[in-house]
Simulated assay, not measured.
Amino acid sequence: MSNAIETRLAELGVTLPDAAAPAANYVPFVQVGNLLHISGQVSMDASGLVKGKLGDNMDVEAGAAAAKLCAIGLLAQVKAACGGDFTKLKRAVKLTGFVNSTLDFGDQPKVVNGASDFLVEVLGDAGRHARSAVSAASLPFGVAVEIEGIFEIE
């Protein structure tokens, strides 16, 4: 699957960043059996953190773009955990998305779709996953979205 994933990312014009180092006392991923648990990846691009609060100063489209950035970070962590070898990745299992949003904002699922849609676009059916999308009153550093994931690997 490695070449297929790398090829698909290139077709989409996506270059994976280096896997982000932990910002506190935790590890970026833990493997238990054939499940790889990836710590929460915050919305971040080459310019830095993508901050905002959905329902206040950020709309759903911008939030979905921030969620896609989190999914890119998740794939970077998967690649690092697999020693750079995407052939070990079998499928996405579960995402939990946290959306920095106002009390009356109710479109968290539409925001997290940015990550879900991206994983399916890159991985095909292996990108389909179980998911939760929840509101958060605030997130670390004021980021718009944070997403953690579970992936099956060989």
Rank of each mutant, 00 (worst) to 15 (best):
S138T: 15
G13A: 07
G149A: 14
G114W: 01
A66P: 12
S43L: 09
G73Q: 06
L119K: 06
F86T: 00
A71P: 05
V93M: 05
F29G: 02
A80W: 01
T102W: 06
K68S: 13
L12A: 10
K53P: 04
L89S: 04
S39H: 11
Q31G: 06
A66S: 14
L75E: 02
G33S: 07
A23Y: 10
V134P: 07
G84L: 10
L95I: 13
K94C: 09
P17M: 13
S2T: 03
R128V: 15
L74V: 14
E154C: 08
H37E: 10
A144L: 09
F29P: 04
Q108M: 14
V30Y: 07
G63F: 05
E11S: 07
V111H: 09
C70S: 12
V30L: 12
A10I: 03
M58D: 02
K110P: 08
A136N: 09
D117T: 14
R128M: 15
G124E: 07
A23S: 14
A137V: 07
I5A: 00
A136K: 12
S138V: 12
L123G: 01
V134K: 13
G48S: 10
A130M: 14
V50L: 15
I147H: 01
F86K: 00
G114F: 02
E61T: 13
L89P: 00
L103R: 06
K51S: 08
V32I: 13
D125P: 07
L16T: 00
V27C: 09
P28A: 11
G33H: 08
L54W: 02
Q41T: 07
G33M: 09
V60Y: 08
F118K: 12
K68D: 04
P109G: 07
R8G: 00
E146W: 02
P22A: 13
F105S: 13
A80S: 14
S2H: 13
P22M: 12
D85A: 10
V111Q: 08
S135T: 14
D104F: 12
R91H: 03
K110G: 10
A115G: 11
R91K: 14
S116R: 15
S43P: 07
V30K: 11
N3M: 08
V122T: 05
Q31C: 06
L89R: 00
T7R: 05
R8T: 08
H37Y: 14
P22H: 10
A23N: 12
M44A: 12
A65Y: 05
V14A: 02
D18L: 12
K53H: 05
G114N: 06
H37P: 02
K51A: 08
K90I: 08
